[in-house]
Simulated assay, not measured.
Amino acid sequence: MGEKRACKARKPGGGRKKLKPEYDAGKNLKEQMESAVVLYDSEMSLQSIADALALNPIKVRKLLITVGVYESEVAEKVKNTFEEYRETQDYKTAILSTSSTLQLSKASVTSYLPYQKGVYFPSTEKEKISVGAERQRRYRAVKKLRAAPTEEHLWETVLIYQKVRFKTYSGLPFSYEIRKGRSGEYTKELWIDRRENSKSLAWSSVLLALGNIKGEIVDRPKALGDIRGVTYIYGMFYRFGLIDVPDEVKEKMNKRGYVAKS
């Protein structure tokens, strides 16, 4: 056998070069998220978005879940179950527990959870995306509600608009929230936050007012019926675009930067 060849000393910093030295995972993920939101907002299916972005539909769904615009019964169950286990378990164990409880594979559970904060993008960027995503969610919900003012679409819109500022007929600001019961499900009661006092508004009252809408312009709250809390319902319906109001009322409700029908 011939002589052994002397090994060449490796240069400092040597080794396999990156195939794509300019590749930035965080920037790439952020661009995919933004593109996915725009396409989803145009009511494209997950498969169509995946085809347009050359991605897997499951990744598209995960991107939309991370941004906060994708909703489904399964996604909600996975999120709630995982968050409950996460209070006492580490990330990986919580995934396994969620998988066992919901009888889903580990991969399925992971696909329904958002990307972890700070893994691919800084929190400031995530916050910017979330704010835009929330606006998109409201826009889509209101658009569906105006096209088909059903109880289901109204409930979806009311949930999304929690803690958003509204104004009453006289121009007084208020917001509301819907609390969850022991089962983890939302109760059908809106808690109105007006200054120091909180008042409850029954969902049945909101539905009653919805059925009482007659004509496009509703001149005063009582025109929606003699309903407890109707002054708040009036402000909500105007913001949702379910009713229009007289010009002098608009002036009061739009004062100080309040923009109607957004």
Rank of each mutant, 00 (worst) to 15 (best):
G2K: 15
K250C: 09
V119L: 13
R138Q: 08
V60R: 01
V74Y: 07
T81P: 01
K20Q: 12
L145Q: 04
T66K: 02
Q116R: 12
K8D: 12
T187N: 13
T88S: 14
G181D: 12
L154R: 00
S42K: 10
E185L: 13
R5I: 15
K106P: 04
V206D: 03
I49R: 00
R256Q: 10
R5G: 07
T231W: 04
S48R: 11
V206H: 00
R86A: 09
S97I: 01
T98Q: 03
E3K: 14
D244P: 00
E71P: 04
Y176E: 00
S205C: 07
T101E: 13
E87F: 04
Q47N: 11
I65C: 06
L242C: 05
V119T: 09
S200V: 08
E84N: 12
K222C: 09
L55A: 01
T157R: 02
K18W: 11
P122I: 05
K92T: 08
D219N: 15
I49W: 01
R228K: 13
W191C: 04
R146C: 06
A75Q: 13
L190W: 04
S205M: 05
L145V: 03
I213K: 00
I227Q: 02
V259G: 05
L207P: 01
S198R: 14
A52Q: 15
I65D: 04
W203R: 04
Y234C: 00
F82H: 03
K20F: 13
V37L: 12
S262H: 10
Y40C: 00
Q103E: 14
W203H: 06
S35W: 03
E248Q: 09
K20E: 10
A260P: 03
I129W: 01
D219F: 14
G215P: 00
K222P: 06
E84H: 09
V78E: 00
E43G: 08
Y91W: 11
L172S: 07
I49S: 01
V249T: 06
L96M: 11
E34N: 13
T157S: 15
A54K: 15
K250L: 15
A6W: 10
Y161E: 11
A141T: 01
I129Q: 03
E127H: 05
L104E: 05
S108P: 02
G257P: 04
G13R: 07
D51G: 11
K126F: 05
K11C: 10
D226Y: 12
D41S: 14
Q47I: 06
P221S: 10
E22S: 10
Y112F: 15
Q103A: 12
E71W: 07
N80L: 15
R10W: 11
S200G: 09
Y91I: 03
L242R: 05
A9M: 11
K180H: 08
I243P: 01
P21Q: 11
